[in-house]
Amino acid sequence: MKFFFFIIVFFSVVLGIVNGKMPEVSQAALTECTAAVTLAISLCGTICFWSGIMNIAENAGLVAKLSRLLSPLLKRLFKGIDPKGAAMNYIMLNLVSNLLGLANAATPAGIRALEELKKEENAEDIATDNMVIFTVMNTASLQLFPTTVAAIRANHGSAAPLEILPGVWIVSALALTVALTAAKLLSKVFRYGKKKGDTS
């Protein structure tokens, strides 16, 4: 990120000089920071409201209930993992937290899941097939309701802030399918346990 910060500012100044847009660049530097605070405040209500609602879902045991629904599917996806073991437990907890948009719960559970997978599969510093599948699932967006996007659309006067929802679901599902297919297929190319010539 430190390079990104520098490069963006560097090009802003250079392009600003070349294009003769320095007054605009200067103006942006002085006002955009305020716009960031305005944006954060306008999102604060949405973030807090859904954190509150999802906290109810979590405390009422909805996460555990949904985990049970997912379990038959996950058994097939993660081959050779004890369906009742600690690793599977954390995998379910992580995925359901992601579905509900509980970012604060998803990441710790995800890291625990990887730790347990590492133990269960006796991995050292090379990712196993199951670890790759699990992590790749986390790089796809599983969240059912993208609150931030909905809030920004609503704040900018969208006639139907949620009309993108079916599209988001279809695209997410498609991306997840591609991620899982790629993970399965590429595991034959990037073979596990090969020390030399491996790319990471």
Partner: peptide, 13 residues
Amino acid sequence: LMTCIGMFKASGG
């Protein structure tokens, strides 16, 4: 990020 992206946009970047 919003400040540097705002500057970048203003510069025509």
